[in-house]
Amino acid sequence: MVLNDGSQHKYHVWRPDIDIIRHEVSFSPANFDISCSCKLISELGILCCHCIRILHVHCVSSIPDKYILKRWTKKVIDGRNVNIDSMVYNVGVPPSIWVFDISRKFQKLVVSSKDSSVARKFCDEAVDDAKKKVEAEIGYVHIEECGAASSNGGVQNPSSQRLKGERNKRRSGVIEKKYSLARGRRSAANKVALSTKGDVQSLVLEGISKLAGMDILYIQVLRVQILFSLARV
């Protein structure tokens, strides 16, 4: 717990041996309002493990109904009998439904034409004609030629093929960047600690060497006291 003003509690939640980042959870016992810095509940509507842990700390026996969204239950399909065929030419049809329907039709048409050279020619001409009309409406559309056929009739590799051994470059996510920064800070702290420890030990040895002319028993007692002090630090 990092804050308790009576009406709201704030916690830092993490797994000590696994997690580097600490997530902040805000909880209001009066109305069971809870939020987390991982944004899982605000973006997807799903309670994260950090929030569930805080609910468990406050002895909340069951998840509040306001955090059980209908879209994640079986009730979401009630009363959703959508007739896709009647919405094909409707301007208000959602893009995802239209893409699925038109892709299914084109796939059926292409697969049916694969064994006929004349039918395949019709499909190629239809694609070229549709591309010109679409470009006249929305602008240039890039369609990459995959090199499906060559002069000798063989199948060629696509022009965008990566070289052998070359890895696919992926952009780092937000969580990955935070973990990298945390590891860098931890590594720098360990280096500073080791460097400081080495400097202190060298100073101790130098001081002991200067006291070589003193009584041997006194030097041994002094050395034990210095080592004990270092062990406590």
Rank of each mutant, 00 (worst) to 15 (best):
S150L: 05
N4I: 05
C48H: 04
Y218E: 06
K133V: 07
L47Y: 03
D124Y: 08
M214T: 09
G92V: 04
F27T: 00
G207K: 15
A148S: 11
S112H: 12
K114F: 03
C36A: 06
I52F: 01
V57A: 06
S113E: 03
A193M: 12
S62I: 13
V118Q: 03
P158V: 12
R232I: 06
E24H: 04
T196N: 14
G165F: 04
E24G: 01
D5R: 05
I54S: 00
S117Q: 13
L203P: 01
G153V: 03
C38H: 02
K70N: 10
S7Q: 15
D129S: 15
F27Q: 01
R183N: 09
E125P: 00
L181D: 11
I20H: 11
S187K: 14
S35A: 13
V200E: 04
V76E: 13
R170P: 02
H58V: 05
K10S: 06
L230C: 08
C123F: 02
I20Q: 11
H50S: 00
V127M: 11
K75Y: 15
V224P: 00
V25I: 14
H9S: 04
D199V: 13
P29W: 01
S202F: 14
I63V: 08
F106W: 13
A189W: 05
G154V: 13
F100A: 12
P29F: 02
F100K: 12
